[in-house]
Design a protein around this nucleic acid. Sequence first.
DNA 1: GCCGATGATTATTG
DNA 2: CAATAATCATCGGC
Length: 429
Amino acid sequence: MDEQPRLMHSHAGVGMAGHPGLPQHMQEGTGGADGDGRKQDIGDILQQIMTITDQSLDEAQARKHALNCHRMKPALFNVLCEIKEKTVLSIRGAQEEEPPDAQLMRLDNMLLAEGVSGPEKGGGSAAAAAAAAASGGAGADNSAEHSDYRAKLAQIRQIYHTELEKYEQACNEFTTHVMNLLREQSRTRPISPKEIERMVAIIHRKFSSIQMQLKQSTCEAVMILRSRFLDARRKRRNFNKQATEILNEYFYSHLSNPYPSEEAKEELAKKCSITVSQVSNWFGNKRIRYKKNIGKFQEEANMYAARTAVNATNVSSHGSQANSPSTPNSAGSAGSFNMSNSGDLFLGVQSMNGDSYQGSQVGANVQSQVDTLRHVISQTGGYSDALTASQMYSPQAISTNGGWQDATTPSSVTSPTEGPGSVHSDTSN
DNA sequence: GCCGATGATTATTG
DNA sequence: CAATAATCATCGGC
């Protein structure tokens, strides 16, 4: 806001008075309005500057030429170059090249692994390819789920590449600019090629640190994306009905020892088209949940027991599976495909049993729990090969503190003069 | 939208 | 290292 007054003052001749090169008379050429006067002044000043500049430039050029042509000039220049070289070298020695950055390498590796910085889409995106390969048979919905992920990854990839390109271009432009500048200056002052080199290196270092930031943030973005999309827990899918049936069938037909061997797990996994670890998860969950609330699973237990039972009878019409109490989990339920109309019959059975263990929850009464178990076992035992085995393993299986694990001593618990244990016999009809 | 079922993960244990 | 127990997070029926 105080510009105006000052200009006014300068017009009065005070401001410019200090400039020796400016003849005073020029400033008061026109006495008219303020504006006119100032314009005139500026014009004059500009013109003066022009002439002065031209003059000085010419003069400088002339001087330069004179210097360049001076007979001592090359020698002096060489001396200067030598001195410069030495100082540059000493500086260089002080801060030698930094070691290849481990962090940067890690970032690079990760970006490569994620398919962000690798070759173009086709063969690239190693992660996606691996995921697709891993999905194997049931890949249909898997790929559908990953499509979104891949789209986002491609987006990140594109941003990364454009940014990288931009940085590179800027770096190159800046480098050439600086090099031109230095080369031009090298005509008037001693600049060794090494110095230029060093300058370029510095510029590159600066830009690569920027690049590293870019890589870092890209990595972060990919990590977030991964955690959001590939966390299986978030995108949990229930197993299909058939798979659940197969698993349940196995579980209930091996209720006395529901710990499938590794081979059994593999087979189940194949049958259900899920992974082995999913089978393990399933059995882990099933065991714990069954044990926690046997009553809740009673119906289910009876149903599957009945199925396998019917199956067993169908398969081996003349049940010659006399007595082989060795491995209860090798079972004959392998190729079991169920009869559908048997359900009614056994629902009735189940309801009958239901009464007896209704109140026997929560481990209050050991005996009642044993009885409960015996009901289930009796049914499976009645029909399948589990007959012999079950009596060996099951009664004390889920005892007071539960757990099939400590069923290692199949001792005397068989049937101490109890009713419920033997009630089963008539269910065979 | 609530709520039980369910597959997966995590911490702990032997 | 596998099993268990607790927990998380989603699914799916109502």
